[in-house]
């Protein structure tokens, strides 16, 4: 896939812009699912994906195969388009704060359904982080790239992601404990 993508990118960059349609066909669906993790309305998510492809087209020369695959590069663009959409829709910012006693582990009796519900109470960006880490099993380096780290800031961002993951897990424990007590 990577090799095919890179060849496709070379064609597009050399002026064969019609091949961009093939790139969109190849990655459109996967990108839609990716964006859907942040933008819940289908129509909005589709707009975001479309904007992401247009932005990718405008910045074709920014793609560096040494840094990331085409898929990861597209995800990076789509992620920021999705965040821009959230900002435009004036989503209320809820700080990720953990107060009170934090249990060391998830409650013993936690089920996947409960955890699913608890995750949905997190900020979309944090849900995305969990998806990329636990479900897609992406390396923190890749996640940091998707979330906007540059070559210079990559190491620092990776370490920040580690501590952010820690806080998200803490918050989930608090939410689940509260849910169990109710």
């Amino acid at each position: 896939m990577n090799g095919d993508d890179d060849t496709l990118m070379q064609h597009i960059r050399s002026g064969n812009t019609q091949r961009f349609g093939s790139l969109a066909e190849r990655h459109g669906h996967q990108l839609m699912l990716f964006v859907g993790r942040i933008v819940s309305q289908r129509e909005d998510a589709e707009d975001v994906v479309q904007n992401a492809f247009v932005a990718a087209y405008e910045h074709l020369n920014d793609y560096d195969p040494e840094r990331a695959s085409v898929q990861t590069w597209l995800q990076r663009i789509a992620y920021h388009e999705a965040l821009r959409h959230l900002r435009r829709s004036k989503r209320q910012m809820v700080p990720l704060e953990v107060t009170g006693d934090v249990p060391d582990e998830l409650p013993e009796t936690t089920t996947a359904e409960q955890l699913d519900e608890a995750i949905r109470q997190l900020q979309p960006e944090d849900q995305m982080l969990l998806q990329l880490y636990y479900f897609d099993r992406r390396a923190l380096k890749d996640i940091a790239y998707i979330m906007g780290a540059t070559t210079d800031t990559l190491t620092r961002e990776v370490s920040r992601l580690g501590s952010r993951m820690h806080r998200i897990r803490q918050r989930l424990r608090v939410i689940l404990t509260r849910m169990n007590n109710e």
Binding site: A24, G28, H29, M32, L33, V35, G36, R37, R42, A45, E46, V49, Q50, L106, T110, A112, E113, L115, D116, I119, R120, Q127, L130, Q131, Y134, F135
Partner: peptide
Amino acid sequence: LFHEALQRQNDRLARRMRLSEDF
């Protein structure tokens, strides 16, 4: 547990998030 919970979310997304025919 995380994987199972996130799997549920991705299943829901797969049902809802489809690109339009004319995308």
